[in-house]
Design a protein around this nucleic acid. Sequence first.
DNA 1: ATGAAAGCGCTAACAA
DNA 2: TTGTTAGCGCTTTCAT
Lengths: 334, 334
Amino acid sequence: MRVRLEDVAKAAGVSPKTVSRVLNNEENVRGPTREKVLAAMAAMDYRPHLSARSLASNRSYLVATLYDNPSSNYLTEIQTGVLDACDEHHYSMMVRPLLAESPDFVERVDALILHHRPDGFVLTPPITEHPQLLAHLKQRGVPYASVSPVQHEAVIGAFIDEPQAAREMVGHLLSLGHRRIAHVIGHPAHGASGWRLAGYRDALAAAGLPYDPALVVEGDFSFGSGVAAARTLFSLTDRPTAVFAANDDMAAGVIWAAGEHGLAVPRDVSVCGFDDTPISRQIWPTLTTIRQPSREMGRIAALQLLASLRGRGEGHMVQLPFALQVRESTAPVS
Amino acid sequence: MRVRLEDVAKAAGVSPKTVSRVLNNEENVRGPTREKVLAAMAAMDYRPHLSARSLASNRSYLVATLYDNPSSNYLTEIQTGVLDACDEHHYSMMVRPLLAESPDFVERVDALILHHRPDGFVLTPPITEHPQLLAHLKQRGVPYASVSPVQHEAVIGAFIDEPQAAREMVGHLLSLGHRRIAHVIGHPAHGASGWRLAGYRDALAAAGLPYDPALVVEGDFSFGSGVAAARTLFSLTDRPTAVFAANDDMAAGVIWAAGEHGLAVPRDVSVCGFDDTPISRQIWPTLTTIRQPSREMGRIAALQLLASLRGRGEGHMVQLPFALQVRESTAPVS
DNA sequence: ATGAAAGCGCTAACAA
DNA sequence: TTGTTAGCGCTTTCAT
């Protein structure tokens, strides 16, 4: 038979409510009493019944993570971080893949709210930028945290200074003597694409270099779009000597296309990415990129959400550090 | 205020218990009565309260999907399929990344069981092959379904005929005139690695070709291991004219390494993979591979689990079809 | 085929 | 600081 809160109460010689107080870290329990209860819980290996708690307290102890891009390493990392935070606080996490483009997007999320009653959401890009969804969540009164949202104000979550990271990446290329530096833009629905582009432009401007639209090509974060973009760039009469792709997959595509054009990386052209996903270490040459603490971002965002759920302070938007990873795909201009 | 079962009962002019019967598809409700109740539910947009159901019925309506490899497309696909099935039956799904190697692996799963009380598990490779876990689940009485397990007997789930798929893939290479066909083995902990190797050997034997150990190299399903394996293979005096890698990531690595060695694919060497993951369409040349209905496998496995949970029959091990996808990375031997 | 009563394990509101 | 009582919304058991 399973151990119930009542059994713990009997064993500890207190009332059920006192055990409940200890369980929920409430105040108004004296040290010794708390100790007694905790000891009894441990001795009996007591595990609270989630559904009973949930029914009585009208909270689900559930956090739902919403994502759109179903197979990106980056999102899997974030998921893991969110899970870390939930585990720490005995919350459960559910994930929900969604198509942000689909017409019944908000409806689906609403069905999820009605059915599972999550206490809060963690939103990942690009769902962080969906105005109707955000409005709906506010209307329903369901709190949420965002990972890398475009808007930082009035939102809790975690982010890195993406424009600054992009500036440092371009700065690295400049320091190697590159002057014709191309950029492959990411998926237009992602805020990160705009930021990375902005950082690229800033860095050029700061170095007194002109912005050449011919050197800036659109992609969509996929390997294939990197290949396509690079084919365009490498066909230019005045080829770039360096390519900054807005993520690693596209950078890998650029390196692939360089091979097609008989260009050696980094001898003939330097290539760099963003995100430090596994592919950056698997390809050859290994990729110079920006390390983003994705898992930690998921964890911190979730922790902020949980803090706000439990009324412990407000919950904040937390800035995390990034790191430039210099590897073998970038070299001095020849 | 939210609509409760009692409200529906009042609106339909029946007792709460009758509504409950309709909700749970129980018998002993006459057609007209059922209709009335269903109409009331729909009109009021009634959604049962998960925790209340769970508390009263001692079931969680929760399926937990366990996985080890945290960032593979294949597993994300399976996850999505499991989610499809759970949605269809108003179950929720939680995912749990685990390290099968870690010493407290079973302990962690047990903590999950105690805390969340899932009604069942869906296991994905290689966790399908963990004897201690399987023993523990049986002891705890928690049912599970397996996707692509090595053992098909006495287990419910879904699989494809992997040896046959590998045989067809090698058959394709043979039909193009290849005779020196290499194989890059997958991760040793995965049952699929053994099956695909077996299919490779069978096909060679059936064609009357000798098995040459020098042409069989170990990998671990990663891009990098494909690169490493190919470097070995392409350094042989008597190079293979075709390489069958046990998954797409490794095949992409092989193509990459071919470039390093100045070999054009498919002109100088044919390469093929397995799984038909997105990368197979993103690289150039596009990859000949085996399409495996991963999402459907997840869905079917979960459906079998749910069927057995609800006592509707036994739950079976279902075989699903695969398909050889011939693309541009394989060509007649030159 | 349908209904009434009891209770799942916990917490909220109130009392002491 | 601690305990008592009543219920959360549903399903169970047992009637009818």
